[in-house]
Design a protein around this nucleic acid. Structure first.
Lengths: 197, 197
DNA sequence: CCTACCGATCGGTAGG
DNA sequence: CCTACCGATCGGTAGG
């Protein structure tokens, strides 16, 4: 029983270290020997904790996907305007990423190394998530809250690009907190950077 | 002479095919044997055209960097407002990318596989380019054209994220042209998506 | 551009 | 978690 607990936590240690390694070198260039060395064990010993290198990637990608999904579920329950929903969606997304910036970077950059049918599943989850944001934008246009001239595909892709690159430059030790960052990003997208007065 | 020209054009064929392969599989996961097969030759034969796998990556990354730089040089010569400069800079960047979406994707996603001192040089070019856009934003704030409350780092990072992800979803056979896309992206960033009337 | 090959390294297994 | 390995594959060279 305590043995099972120990194994579980050791497995998580392996996965977390792997995330750091995958983020730094990329999945393909990161070797299991590199990973073992970081953990102070032999490469062969890794396989008492995990089944394969790809299993690690899978758990990182799909766990993050589940977190993003949960966050957006909460937002959609709210009865608020489209711009408020968009704001909450952005803040939620950033909060999820901020909880694990390393896993977020792997989620974003390394998912393509997933083999089938996992890659297909992952891509479906992602397109679904993006479409839920698109729905919010469409609602905003319908309600007369957003310009009818905006290109929704461009807007949603711009949003996602900004969101997904955040792990590359966001400094968690810096002054700005995740929620504040989300608010500013949402404000910039909704209101632009031009002075309105 | 015609031999030299043939070699040159063959070298370029190799590089272009490599760009497609690097984009699709990632640099580390793309093997020279894969590349050779795409070209219908043996892996060893590649080395009569190129010195090493990394030499290909270097030429792709640094050639793109030079194109981006040239484009921004032109923009900075113009005597126009900050928002117009920003607009022209965005359009220029997108035009450069649209000329070679494959090389652009490699430039963005694979540069980290450059070895030193090339990686350092590349990163310096990139930060310099980003800072030139930041200067445009600062000018806009100073001139009272942009809100003084905007986070310039966030704004410039958002801009770059959107710009750099474009090769991932932009469909060159689609209806929207590069210049039009640049205009819309600039408009969205400057004016936001909210109705102002 | 080819054949023939090199040493290094890869993910992973057997058996303890 | 270790020692001892495996077959496959890697980037690249020699010599033509």
């Amino acid at each position: 029983m305590s043995e099972a607990l120990t194994n579980l936590s050791r497995k998580e240690q392996v996965i977390r270290k792997a995330a750091e390694l995958f983020k730094e070198k990329g999945y393909a260039a990161a070797s299991m020997r590199d990973l073992a060395q970081l953990l102070g064990i032999e490469a062969a010993s890794l396989y008492s904790h995990i089944k394969s290198k790809e299993e690690i990637l899978r758990s990182l990608c799909f766990d993050m996907a589940a977190e993003f999904r949960k966050s957006l579920d909460e937002v959609e329950k709210q009865h608020v305007s489209a711009s408020e929903k968009l704001r909450l969606g952005i803040i939620g997304h950033i909060q999820v990423m901020a909880k694990d910036l390393t896993a977020s970077a792997v989620f974003m950059n390394e998912h393509r190394h997933l083999s089938e049918p996992f890659l297909r599943d992952f891509l479906l989850l992602r397109i679904n998530y993006i479409n839920r944001f698109k729905t919010i934008l469409e609602q905003g246009v319908r309600d007369g809250e957003f310009k009818s001239t905006i290109d929704k595909k461009l807007a949603v892709m711009t949003l996602f690009s900004s969101l997904n690159w955040m792990p590359m430059w966001y400094d968690p030790t810096g002054i700005i907190e995740p929620v504040e960052l989300g608010k500013q990003l949402a404000d910039m997208l909704v209101n632009g950077i031009k002075k309105t007065s």
